[in-house]
Design a protein around this nucleic acid. Structure first.
Length: 351
DNA sequence: AACCCGGGGAT
DNA sequence: ATCCCAGGGTT
């Protein structure tokens, strides 16, 4: 690691930093919320979610007191839903143990649910000016190229040595800006996909990968496991008033979110009708809907679907099912993006 | 150390 | 199709 990257880096940052809703706000809660949302998620995707979240839950106390269904709804479509559940647990902890004030110390932040080494460093440095590194994917990429380090950046050993090196680089001056500048550089100049903009880089003079023409080869990461493919059949079950949805189990994929009923495998019309009867419903008509595909990071769903009209049962609520109209669903229930093709078929309220 | 956990944009 | 994103928790 070359000496004195801080000065050119900060100079570049001051001139080129993007204006972001959570940036330069001097509010540790804003820093916290933004950092959690930004985990594995691009800035442009986060912006509208951040604004809406802060507007409804403007401080730690509001987050701690919010109903779970509501925070999940505010997170709907962002993915990795345990992020917001953990954040709320931490908010309760901050209220009870720290009087509602976000801790400033790295180790204390690290003890909170959902806050790991990166996020603790980000909050401590950005919100409180502590001299601690915040090493994310951007920083690892910049570092690997700058030093031409061919170690697997996913390994803890590499990450730990990056943290040590950076701590030596940071001045007491502006640790938060230093960390943000490293990330900003990775996000807009030393980019992950496509050609890095080395001619714009304030550290180009120091960069070993640039010097040796190896920028495209770095960073090195171990190959990831292939996705498994699952076939599913989605059932858009409708009675006189609405469409059936149900709550998913509280563990595993999309835990605790709502979904359209669906079963494993690609069912024929006949098999789908039989399945609906087995659910205690009386089918009246069936119609095939278009196929759809949804890709998670580790699973791919290949879906077929049927719209099935069933007779309304005035008495006895349908166990696990909720029959809702689209407006009520949109307002109250968080349904993951995987079902988007089929939630379009949900019934509108009669009027 | 390996695996689980979403969704979407860029190439 | 592939990559990867301002990662963290669990086992």
């Amino acid at each position: 690691m070359p000496e004195n990257i801080a000065e050119p880096l900060l100079k570049w940052y001051d001139k080129n930093k993007r204006i972001l809703p959570w940036r330069d706000k001097d509010n540790a809660y804003y820093t916290w919320v933004s950092e959690i949302m930004l985990q594995q998620t691009r800035v442009e995707a986060v912006k509208p979610y951040f604004q809406r979240f802060i507007q409804e839950l403007p401080d730690v106390a509001a987050l701690a007191a919010a109903p779970e269904e509501r925070i999940i709804k505010l997170w709907e479509g962002l993915g990795y839903y345990s992020r917001v559940r953990n954040m709320q647990k931490a908010a309760v902890q901050v209220m009870e143990e720290y009087g509602g004030r976000m801790p400033e110390d790295f180790e204390t932040l690290l003890s909170l649910k959902g806050i790991g080494r990166y996020t603790a460093g980000a909050i401590a440095s950005i919100a409180y000016g502590k001299k601690v590194p915040a090493v994310d994917g951007n920083v690892l990429r910049v570092y690997a190229r700058l030093t031409e380090n061919r170690g697997d950046i996913m390994k803890q050993s590499v990450r730990k040595s990056v943290e040590n090196d950076l701590t030596g680089q940071m001045s007491e001056d502006r640790p938060g800006d230093f960390n943000q500048a490293m990330m900003e550089l990775g996000a807009v100049v030393c980019v992950p996909n496509g050609a890095a903009k080395c001619e714009e880089c304030p550290l180009g003079h120091f960069c070993l990968a640039r010097k040796h023409g190896t920028v495209e080869e770095l960073p090195v990461k171990a190959p990831k496991k292939a996705r498994t493919i699952e076939q599913r059949t989605v059932l858009v079950i409708q009675d006189g008033v609405g469409t059936a949805i149900r709550k998913r189990p509280d563990t595993g994929l999309l835990a605790g979110l709502y979904e359209l009923p669906n079963v494993e495998g690609h069912l024929t019309e006949k098999a789908a009708l039989a399945r609906v009867k087995a659910m205690g419903l009386e089918p009246l008509r069936i119609e095939a809907l278009p196929d759809a595909k949804h890709i998670f990071s580790h699973i791919e769903w290949r879906m077929c679907a049927y719209r099935i009209a069933v007779s309304s049962l005035e008495e006895a609520p349908q166990g696990e099912f909720l029959f809702v109209d689209k407006r009520e669903s949109d307002k109250k229930y968080a349904i993951p993006s995987a079902f988007r093709t089929y939630t379009r078929y949900m019934k509108e309220e009669n009027s």
